[in-house]
Design a protein around this nucleic acid. Sequence first.
RNA 1: GGGCCUGUAGCUCAGCUGGUUAGAGCGCUACACUGAUAAUGUAGAGGUCCGCGGUUCAAGUCCGCGCAGGCCCA
Length: 1089
Amino acid sequence: MKRYKTQPQLNLLKVAQEIELFWDAQETFVRSIQQREVGTPFVFFEGPPSANGAPGVHHILSMTVKDLFTRYKTMQGYYVRRKSGWDTHGLPVELQVEKKLAITKEDIGKKISIVDYNQACRSTVMAYKSAWEALNKRLGYWKDNLNPYITYERDYIESVWYLLKALYNKKLLYKGYSIQPYSPPTGVGLSSHELNQPGCYKPVKDIAIVAQFKSTENEYLLAWTTTPWTLPANSALAVGATIQYVKVATINPYTRLPIQVILAEDAVQRFFTGEQAKCIDDQSDHSILPWEIVARYTGADLVGLRYEQLLPYVQPKGEAFKVVAADFVTTTEGTGIVHIAPTFGADDYRIAQKENIAAIMVTNAAGESVPIVDRKGRFVPEITDFAGRYVKAAYEEDATLPPVDLLIARKLKQENKAFKVEKYEHSYPHCWRTHKPILYYPLDAWFIKTTAYKELLIELNDTIQWKPAAVGKGRFGNWLENLVDWNLSRERYWGTPLPIWRTVDQKEEKCISSIAELMFEVEQAVLAGYMKEQLPADIDLHRPYVDDIVLVSSNGLPMYRETAVIDVWFDSGAMPCAQWHYPFENQEIFEKGFPADFIAEGVDQTRGWFFTLHVIATLLFEIPAFKNVVVNGLVLDKYGNKMSKSIGNTIDPMELLTQYGPDAIRWYMISNANPWDNLKFDAAGVAEAVRKFFITLHSTYNFFVLYANIDQFFFTKSVVAPSALDESDRWIISRSHTLIKTVTQAYDHYEPTLVARMIQDFVVDDLSNWYVRLNRKRFWKNSQDSNKEAAYQTLYHCLITVSKLMAPIAPFYADYLYQALNQVTEKEKHHSVHLVDFPIAEALDPILEAEMRQVQKIVSMAHALRKKHKIKVRQPLPSIRIIGLFASTGWARLEALIKAEINVKQIHYLDDTPNFKKAKPNFPLLGKRYGPKMKQLSEAIIALTPAEIYALEQGHIHLLDLHGEAIPLTLSDIWVVTEDIPGWCVATEGELTIALDTTLDDALQKEGIAREWVHRIQQLRKTLNFDIQDNIIIDIQQNKNLINQTIAAYKDYICMETQAVQLQFVPELEGVEVDIEGVVVVVRLTKVE
RNA sequence: GGGCCUGUAGCUCAGCUGGUUAGAGCGCUACACUGAUAAUGUAGAGGUCCGCGGUUCAAGUCCGCGCAGGCCCA
């Protein structure tokens, strides 16, 4: 015989494990995609994680978000491919390998060959692949792990090359320089990672100079610097546009010449002490400078002002020596005017680019433009006074030589160009290898000219729906507003090599877009004698193999590859094309699969993957790479601290899933807070989700199973006509459709937290605690009528609907529930909930739902009143009076519900009780109209008499006298409330007021006793462990008391309620003593076998 | 240093375009209810809506300045 299966004690982990095996056996994931192949594509991009580290708890969150929307769209009929991917290149991998092999970057190619090194990278980068896949599986994150894209694979790199060439062809890939931390003794640049090593920043004493830049005769701009050696490279001065500046008449402390200097007003106190005084002729006192403010400017006034070159060794090739505005200028140190040397500062370089200011550069022997300091850290010959001198004393072998900074200071003092020279202690970065100070120095780099597409990048970003919007507008938008060209090259080994070959004289270069093109070029090179033979067919495109390839230029010169590899972020940003080996294969798949409809990653990807996807798509295809993006926040520990291994507050995700089961974790993470808010992870919250949601749902299902198995309800009859449904059936069905509607909207708006909360509220409040509770009797009564059938069908409908709605978020239990129901009824042909169509909202009955809300309110208030007056619900009361009700024609059918639920005999409506009504102003309406008069108006309205309110309700207009001004009021201008009716037990909530009549007559009292008696017998049944279906015989010891009389009078009622086939009074009885209102009754229950 | 986010009950969170007495769940206390429930109902305790200033008839909500925590970038 068919039976609904169930677990009496819900074990979510066990459910998940069973379902996981079932999915494996049935290939449910593959089928869920296959059956949608005809559907509209919904494109999802998987952001590739790096498998060189173990997954953490926060990955559960992002995986859940990705999984739930792809499942949802699949159920909606879309064709949702989910290709896995692995990010495999990059600095973190290299550092990990260096640590493991106990080598440094300098050892690569020396102590270890590049081949071996890259092999070590390749083998370590997938170290945690199986851990990731196991987590995917246990969590139920459905994606295609069998055919992932892997960024180190040859096909992938070839696609990346293709994209680079496309950028190259659009002249968006160029070689320039960027200002980077540089260690002259070693000759290598330092990464920001290396600069963040502990001990890198050390306090040092440098010479700080306030230099005088001459603008007009006798007028100077004061700029402060702690790196005097950069002054010969000065080509601009920067001010803050909104900062206040002053011109001060004073004298130069070294030359004693009268001068006028410009500096920020906030900085004046730093250089001048005491009162202002017109004593600039007085040169007797050497310690105090005379000073007087003679003019004021804002920074904006100064912009464009020109000045003479401070140290004119080298002339710029282009515009220079003028004041520009920059947002990094502050007045907390120095003069509020910043010296700009574009070759020796990152900010300087950026502002110079923006303002089109030329850098001070010289031409070297090779004809290249180079900075005035060479790569060893020495001034070039053009800086005649200091030629060949190291700019930092620390580099100098001869420690007796005076530092260059000092010499420059001395020179400036003599030339009336220094206003102040002092020793200055500050924190300065040092090379972790040589322990000597670094320089900020221009190093060669390849760039993508993102700035050329800045406008389009911003414009297209506005078409992307960000969740939350603030990340798109704020963080990402600001990033785009302050865009600089993308520094693409890295002087590393384990990465996609830059496919550019150049002649030694740099006059000719080739960018290679494919293996075929490379082969063709090599063929030419073989003919020219630069290469011995053609490349092997399975050529590895990594270093060092590509480094060994020499090509031939158009005029027969050898061409060597630029040594850089590219930024690993380009790899992942290229995935829309490269995951399909586009354009070499799968053109159609790519074209139909671009752009993405949906992506989701952590907020830390804003300037990572989100940015690189957006840049590549915009620059090459001029469309955005994705239409919707859900940004998820961090997962913190329960106290709001970041989880980190050093604090020891990390949680093993696999352990977590094993402890609670994946559904519980997923539900908790989604329902607790929006994914974009940081999640304070607390296991107690997971336990609550289980108790509150899953156990309640499962209990509801268990209730259904209990009776459906007894009554053999297998949904074989046709659907009961709506007219034959009970009012509560129609209500819960309407509620379920409203839920379908709102849940669909929330999913569509990428609001998963709303979805989970709405489903939970429906299950707990509406279905379990209202519908099932009200209708229990319909399930356990013996008859098999259409009313019972309707109850079963309705509950079945609700359960199966919930299983579908929750399936994206809690895929295991949802499938368990769906299968448990559907395998018995076979109403639907699908073997899994993940193969069904997402439900569509049909008939809604908002009026009924509104009315039921009132019923719930009335019941709640009535219970409160009973409690207040200590009257048990079992005691029937004569009547309830209801005021302020909204009721349609169908209301009458809900009356029985109220009567049963609060145990009253009659309902009266008192809509016309003018005596107790009060009025409050309708603030939003009147506020707009009367504004400042609201206070007085409000008082006048509250003072309205019941008669006046009654008149308003009859449609009359009331003229309020407000200090002589007549203000017309209509009913819509006020809110009417009934707060109290003298002499009644009254409760009010909003517009509803109820009153209970608590007078008891004899009949009501007796009925109360009968119900109490039923209750006692039921409790006895329970203690005797009788089964629900067991029939019983009730024996009661004969007595003449009121209780026995009442029992006799209500014999039939009592028997029906307690499954008793017989109730008899016997003279003598060995039984249980039951105390009802002080009267002891002896009773015995016997099971009928 | 810059940008962005968050701050509401002991905890986790709602609170739409400003509008009646700021809500829910968990936890706590008491009582009730239970023929599915590990539940549930009712009541009580618990709030400087982070602070200060401003706009407004009216501010948790809008604006400014701070404070605290977080993220990203320097």
